[in-house]
Nucleic acid binder design. Structure first.
Length: 774
DNA sequence: TCATTGGGCTTTTTT
DNA sequence: AGCCCAATGA
């Protein structure tokens, strides 16, 4: 047996060497699933499987890179580099580039990021003269995105009366038309958005049996990490590719499913056993990462969820310190507390800055943390938020580069055609767009043939300006034939006047902008150098742009500087830190006010909390405030229900509970009044205590049986609930005024279907919806 | 056509 | 409080 396999425990070894057939690995937090995936691939290769035949889909590019490095250490670099390993988006973007002509796309198609998509949708809404207050571009985008992720094409949409009716009821009857225009415009621009990378892959595999066969035969072994976060579109791709050999291994943890909001379907993992023949399921339940206190506290949280797979996470680690809970007056104080606590731990425990992470629910919370850390002189790095490649100045440079590789790219064109200002104004652009729509071609093509379209009525001066622009781009295209990406980019920033434009601004921000552009150019130089080492890569501009489009903030190489990490909980998935501070543990923030209306949304927030807590190896801190700045205003806050849900024995409260402030929405009746007699009622009923050492199989069986499925502990005043009958007019905090159409379910699960004057029909769980009878 | 200003909107999370 | 966009005047 290979030496590396001895590093695995029994539970990890079994799925690692089970190479044939379909298997599912349910892996608790910190149970070593990455190790299983890595060694499994190494093992396959040792058994003689060609790396070309292995497809491994990961959640981030960083995870892929790290796994590849690890595998390279075991099987050798030259073998490992042939593995197909990456995110769904990056792997299938490569395949789509190769097969693009079959779908009528150019192989150098652009990838639109969310901002590009939203700008395009915005302009479509404007061109259709629709009310932008009703058709909000972000909402429309997310609606279209969800269609695409469910494989609902424009045609399918118009064939589905339910969907159309739902949009009509929401006062947005023209969503379908917007969708139609959006798809057409993307296609015409030679652009795919993020969702297209999956949708078009499905199209490719469905429409072309020979292509399907080719990739089925190629990918004899398929591995999917974070399977619980795959959406329907991804699910179908995997299913199609695995169909022939059925050598598929999916790894996931239903308790860490946190992407339902972008279409992830938890049923993919819950139903895996039905999808393939003879599925073998393995469980990794021993946590190696965290102290027992943290593991058990996390278990006590997830116990509140109804929908979950049977799984008991335990650890042999020490108890460790309790989770510290602290209440602070404001968000500023919260930041100062966290900063000084980090400072203290650094001193007393001799810890590096990189041993600490501050996790929050929303990016907006980072500011208070930053300020405090900066004042204390603690180095930090913020991940996510406005990522490097989303900054305006970077996008400006990239837009020129995009336009050079794909002149049809409409969003890139509109971004730079008059930046820096060259006298091509909105009127002219509108005319061009109109003509492009009319002739069903790209704007750039209209500009090239401007002399042949006299009806445009563009005056001679403007015409010259347009021609100069076209010629400039064309000359860059010539350069692109011979020069590498870095050389070209340098020329572009100079000749377009971008550099001069940026230099006009001498403010600190302006200087930072120039530095960012320099950093981008340096990054391109590194890229060109790096690509020379890879066989298939050409170091072309197109390749660089693809990497950039699909890069996440986590992927960016950083100097090895020792810094505290600040990020959202979503971004922290898969990472671990000795010390973790989870800040903003307040109702309406975490759980988010947007996610408290249905049980499933609330359960997702709870899983998010579970993810946050299980990032901690040694010590976790939870903080909340009494009031915090939101939307520029100081507003009152109350502690998150999630704090209450953890059994007290795992917590050390630095600020004992002040009973009148400590009210949770659960205890608030539907009229908003607080029933003080019920204040402490939601303390978790002590369930079967989690085992403190490795349980025997017998014990595990028993625990699984005893495990309560639902708590159903909150009582709601039935009398007030009974007032809510169909026809009642009610007011909701967020959705405004509406009328109850229907009531369903009973007791704790009673739901009302409500038609709101604005925002359409919503189904709300009465226990959580703060409804006022009118 | 361009620059400035004021108003409105934002905050859920991301490939 | 900050960002983006639209309206306004030069």
């Amino acid at each position: 047996m290979e030496e590396y396999l001895s590093q695995l425990n029994e539970a990890q070894l079994a799925p690692t060497i089970h190479t044939e057939g379909a298997l599912m690995v349910i892996a608790g937090a910190g149970s070593g699933k990455t190790r299983v995936l890595t060694y499994r691939i190494a093992y396959l290769m040792h058994k003689g499987v060609d790396p070309f035949n292995i497809l491994s889909l990961t959640f981030t590019n960083k995870a892929a890179r790290e796994m590849k490095e690890r595998i390279a250490q075991i099987v050798g670099k030259s073998e490992a580099k042939n593995l197909w390993m990456g995110t769904f988006h990056s792997i299938f973007a490569k395949i789509l580039r190769f097969e693009a002509d079959k779908l009528g796309y150019p192989s150098n198609f652009t990838i639109y990021d969310s901002q590009d998509s939203q700008r395009l949708i915005s302009s479509i809404i404007k061109e259709m003269s629709l009310d932008k207050d009703i058709y909000k571009f972000k909402q429309v985008h997310s609606r279209i995105s969800s269609f695409k992720n469910s494989l609902i094409t424009v045609k399918a949409y118009f064939n589905n009366p339910d969907l159309m009716e739902a949009d009509a009821m929401a006062k947005k009857p023209r969503i379908g038309e917007i969708y139609q225009h959006y798809v057409d415009r993307c296609f015409k621009a030679g652009a795919m958005d993020f969702d297209d990378l999956l949708l078009r892959t499905n199209e490719l595999l469905n429409r072309f049996p020979e292509v399907l066969a080719k990739y089925q035969n190629r990918f004899k072994y398929i591995l999917v990490d974070e399977y619980q976060d795959t959406n329907h579109s991804q699910y179908l791709i995997v299913k199609a590719l695995a169909d022939r050999f059925q050598n598929i291994c999916v790894v996931g943890d239903d308790a860490q499913s946190i992407y339902a909001f972008r279409g992830a379907n938890i049923n993919n993992i819950l139903n895996f056993e039905k999808d393939y023949d003879n599925v073998k399921t393995y469980r990794l339940e021993q946590n190696y990462r965290s102290t027992r206190n943290i593991v058990e506290a996390a278990n006590s949280i997830i116990d509140h969820n109804k929908t979950k797979l049977d799984k008991i996470v335990w650890t042999a680690n020490d108890d460790g310190p309790k989770i510290i809970v602290n209440r602070l007056p404001t968000d500023g104080d919260e930041g100062r507390y966290v900063a000084s606590s980090i400072f203290e731990n650094q001193m007393t425990e001799q810890r590096k800055a990189s041993d600490f992470a501050i996790l929050y629910r929303t990016n907006a919370q980072s500011r208070a943390m930053e300020d405090a850390l900066r004042k204390r002189g603690i180095k930090y790095r913020i991940y996510g938020g406005l990522s490097f490649y989303q900054r305006k100045e970077i996008k400006d440079v990239l837009a020129y580069l995009r336009l050079i590789t794909n002149p049809k790219d409409e969003e890139a064109l509109k971004r730079v055609i008059n930046y820096p200002a060259r006298g091509i104004g909105a009127t002219t652009i509108d005319k061009l767009v109109l003509a492009a729509n009319h002739y069903k071609c790209a704007i750039f093509q209209v500009m090239e043939g401007i002399d042949r379209i006299p009806e445009l009525k563009i005056n001679a001066g403007t015409k010259t300006k347009l021609q100069n622009f076209v010629n400039m781009i064309k000359s860059f295209q010539v350069t692109n034939q011979t020069a590498d990406a870095f050389t070209l980019a340098e020329e572009v920033t100079k000749k377009t006047g971008l550099v001069q434009e940026f230099k006009k601004d001498a403010t600190p921000e302006g200087i930072a902008r120039i530095e960012n552009v320099e950093e981008l150019l340096n990054g391109m130089r590194d890229f060109v150098e790096g690509q020379k080492e890879i066989d298939e890569a050409t170091g072309s501009l197109a390749e660089f742009l693809e990497d950039v489009a699909l890069a996440t903030d986590l992927d960016k190489e950083v100097d090895d500087e020792d810094r505290v990490a600040l990020m959202t909980i979503h971004l922290a998935k898969g990472l671990e830190f000795p010390y973790v501070y989870i800040v903003g543990m307040e109702e309406d923030l975490f759980p988010s006010g947007m996610s408290m209306n249905t049980r499933s949304e609330l359960e997702e927030e709870r899983r998010l909390f579970y993810v946050a807590l299980t990032r901690a190896e040694k010590q976790a801190y939870l903080t909340y405030t009494l009031s915090r700045y939101r939307w520029g205003k100081l507003i009152d806050a109350e502690p998150s229900r999630f704090i209450e849900e953890i059994d007290d024995k795992y917590l050390e409260n630095l600020t004992p509970i002040d009973s009148y402030r400590y009210k949770s929405l659960i205890n608030t009746d539907i009229f908003g009044a607080v029933d003080k007699s019920k204040l402490r009622q939601t303390k978790p009923v002590s369930s079967t205590p989690p085992p403190s050492h490795k349980p025997t199989d017998d014990q595990l069986q028993k625990l699984r049986k005893l495990r309560p499925i639902s708590k159903g502990s909150q009582k709601v005043d039935t009398e007030t609930m009974n007032k809510l009958v169909p026809g009642t007019r009610v007011e909701h905090m967020r959705f405004g005024i509406g009328q109850i159409l229907n009531i369903e379910g009973s007791g704790q699960d009673k739901k009302a279907e409500i038609k709101f004057t604005q925002g359409g029909i919503k189904k709300l769980l009465l226990r959580f919806a703060k409804l006022k009878v009118l």
